[in-house]
Amino acid sequence: MASIRLNNIVKRYGVFTGVEKMSLDIEDEEFLVLLGPSGCGKTTTMRMIAGLDTPTEGSIVIGDEIVDDVDARDRDVAMVFQSYALYPNMSVYENIRFPLRMRGVPAKDQDGLIRRAASMVELEHLLERKPGALSGGQRQRAALARAVVRKPQVFLMDEPLSNLDAKLRASMRVQIKHLQRQLKITTIYVTHDQIEAMTLADRIVIMDKGIIQQIGTPDQIYSNPANVFVAGFIGGPPMNLVEGQAEGGVFTAPGVTVPCPPHVRGKVTAGFRPEDCQIPGTDVVGTVFGVEPTGDMTYLTLDVGGRHIEIKAPRTFRSPIDAAVGVAVDPGHLHFFGLDGRRIERAE
């Protein structure tokens, strides 16, 4: 197994910068998720770790070895892709066997390793089938088995669940997490899906425009977003963000009046999550724009001063469109962000 260190890596494509001065320490056996929107640099970062792309500047260390000049095939990393990348003319057994043959594992040892890997992802009964006869979830599990069969130093997973439906994604998340814990292999997982990131990661690295925005555990990032970008990216629905004025311990905006710390002054952005609101109340007053019952809760969208505010209401809540509704916001879960977009820390 291995730790990974990125030392000020930069990746430029002509005048475009894909990754800017990225430094990151990934611990041995850690499950780290690179999260962000399309074009943020997360896949580029993974490709540099894999050796598929070369950093323009900086260095990469895997274990105790600087791997800047080491070919991808010699880095002892295994990749799982969105596209599965299985050989269609080979059976599942032969697909799993392929990396063992390429690395010269003795033939007498291969069968046991293949069946053990297949058992880990519950595919032992499908070893003779070809990929075309498998469902999407089964193909992804075959790709996982091929990656784990030789027990590499590092797993690299690039949007591996994007092609699956919602139910399969949920079951595969559990399988991937269990497999990583079982094998204790350092894993880097790339996704734009914040639910995947929150459920899988030991730590999350949120990126935007090639720059790290925040690093932390899922709880840290959810509870204390570093800036407006992170606050608006994490959560389903994400944090409500309202621009207004703070003065004398009160934040005001059209339809919004909430308390704020005395040191928060001037033009700021207030943030509060949909689940930190209760009906009725007087902190946020608007009209009903939409009501979406989901069974366990009701998503309520309010029109407040021309902006939409999302609320997680009780499952039994119902209201006609355009009805007036007032909401109370938990003052202990209010966040405030300055003109630079950064969260204003609480005064000691």
Rank of each mutant, 00 (worst) to 15 (best):
P55M: 12
Y93R: 15
M46C: 05
D165N: 14
A170G: 01
F98Y: 15
G36W: 05
I221S: 02
Y93L: 12
F317S: 00
I311L: 11
L200K: 03
I176W: 09
T186L: 07
S91P: 01
I49S: 08
I4G: 04
V190P: 02
V80W: 09
P225C: 13
D76W: 08
A107K: 14
V288Y: 00
D69T: 15
Q175R: 13
L300P: 02
T301A: 10
V288G: 09
E128I: 00
P274M: 11
R116I: 02
R146N: 10
T44W: 04
V148I: 15
V149C: 13
E196D: 14
L144I: 15
D296R: 05
D25A: 09
T17L: 06
P320M: 03
E124D: 14
S83H: 14
A231E: 05
R116H: 11
I206N: 02
N227A: 10
G248N: 13
T199W: 01
V250H: 00
L339G: 01
A2H: 04
R203L: 12
E65A: 10
P152E: 12
S223D: 14
S171C: 06
D69W: 03
D25F: 05
G51K: 13
E27Q: 13
T269V: 15
L34M: 14
E247Q: 15
C260A: 14
H308Y: 08
D330Y: 08
V256E: 02
L127S: 08
D165W: 03
V92N: 03
M46Q: 06
R150G: 04
I309W: 03
D219W: 09
P259A: 11
L161T: 02
K267C: 05
T17I: 07
A347P: 00
T217C: 07
I234C: 03
V205W: 05
I234E: 03
V174F: 02
T186Q: 09
I215E: 07
S171T: 15
P331N: 11
Q175G: 04
E30F: 07
